[in-house]
Amino acid sequence: MVRASPHGARPLPFPEIDPVAFAIGPLVVRWYALAYLAGVLLGALYGRMLLKRRALWADNSPPFAPDDIWDFAFWAIIGIIVGGRVAYVLFYNLPQYLANPMEIFALWDGGMAFHGGMIGLMLAVILFTRKRGGNLLSSLDLLAAIGTIGIFLGRIANFINAELFGAPTDLPWGVVFPTDPLGVPRHPSQLYEAALEGLILFLVIRYATHVAHALRRPGLVAGIFGIGYGLSRFAVEFVRLPDAQLGYLYGGWLTMGQVLSLPMILAGLCLIAYAMRSRRA
């Protein structure tokens, strides 16, 4: 049963979207999986466009050839899956997986951590670029420029799955999620993250790359991404419910998502400082 908020605000109904996009016999394809694939595909298309514009890059030299982006797309998928799963196991539910180690491989049951997926992507693009003799910092810049597309689609998929929702709210855009046992209006924190970490950060980085020529200073775009994502995630975590098995940390005011975002912010600051001191422009 849906409960009205204490101030009488009428909650928004949850849109009737089946988490399953389609099924063919025993094969079930969910929107969440399609969001991952679409993020990689659209990111590769946008990345190829950036790689073709050599004037955007330091010394007119992108980290690798435009058509190599399709080879990297395969590396990216592996990096996202392995990194995201390993980080979730280590930081979010380690006791459960130590007791049941075979569940580590049950990806169909969910359980991925963005920060781990990003580390996996970073390792993938660094290894891929080293094999082609490109600039490693420029490859991280490329990843930062295209990564926001996948973040946006992934958070929309979280909303469709009615997962990772926020705390109760009296705001007029509070949503009653069908998976909420309390049936109260809650912050649609997935949409907050889609807007901040996906759309807005994409526009900021696009301005930096196309207007401010940030790609000419290797590491600058990656630094902007680190700070932008870290601050956005840290802010949204104040209204997003923490993982049930962890709860709030350090006296009840920090979440694991906030703890893991702090190194991203610090790394972003270091990258920007290094890029601005670089002689390349």
Rank of each mutant, 00 (worst) to 15 (best):
L137M: 15
L121I: 15
Q190N: 15
S5D: 01
A214R: 11
I80C: 13
A195Y: 05
L51N: 00
D141E: 13
P101F: 01
G219R: 01
L260I: 11
F159M: 01
G111Y: 12
G84Y: 08
E103D: 11
H7D: 15
W75N: 13
A124Q: 10
R217S: 15
I146Y: 04
A212Q: 08
Q258W: 09
G228W: 03
V239Y: 15
F114K: 06
W108E: 10
Y97K: 03
R240A: 03
R277V: 08
G219C: 02
Y250R: 14
Y36T: 05
H213Y: 07
A275L: 04
I272F: 08
A157D: 03
A113V: 09
L260E: 06
A99E: 08
I119R: 10
N135P: 01
A55H: 15
N100V: 08
G228R: 03
S189P: 08
F72D: 03
D170F: 06
M256L: 05
P101C: 08
A267N: 06
I24Q: 07
P242E: 06
R233W: 02
G8T: 03
I149N: 09
I80Y: 04
Y274V: 12
D59Q: 15
A212I: 02
P13R: 03
K131D: 12
H213F: 13
E163R: 14
Y207S: 13
T169S: 01
F72Y: 02
P218D: 13
I81H: 09
L262Y: 15
L266M: 09
A275M: 02
I156F: 13
L215G: 00
P15T: 09
A162H: 01
A162G: 05
L164W: 14
R186L: 04
F165N: 02
V176H: 03
W108R: 05
I265Y: 08
G134N: 03
G134P: 00
L196Y: 12
I69D: 04
H7E: 12
F105Q: 05
M276Q: 11
M256W: 10
G166R: 01
L269Q: 00
T148R: 07
P188T: 05
A124F: 06
L199Q: 07
V175I: 15
G84D: 13
Y248D: 06
A35L: 10
K52C: 07
I146W: 02
G154K: 09
E237H: 11
L137Y: 13
A73M: 13
A55N: 12
A113H: 08
V20A: 15
F91A: 12
A65I: 00
V176C: 08
D109N: 07
L241T: 14
E163N: 09
R3I: 15
M256A: 00
A273M: 11
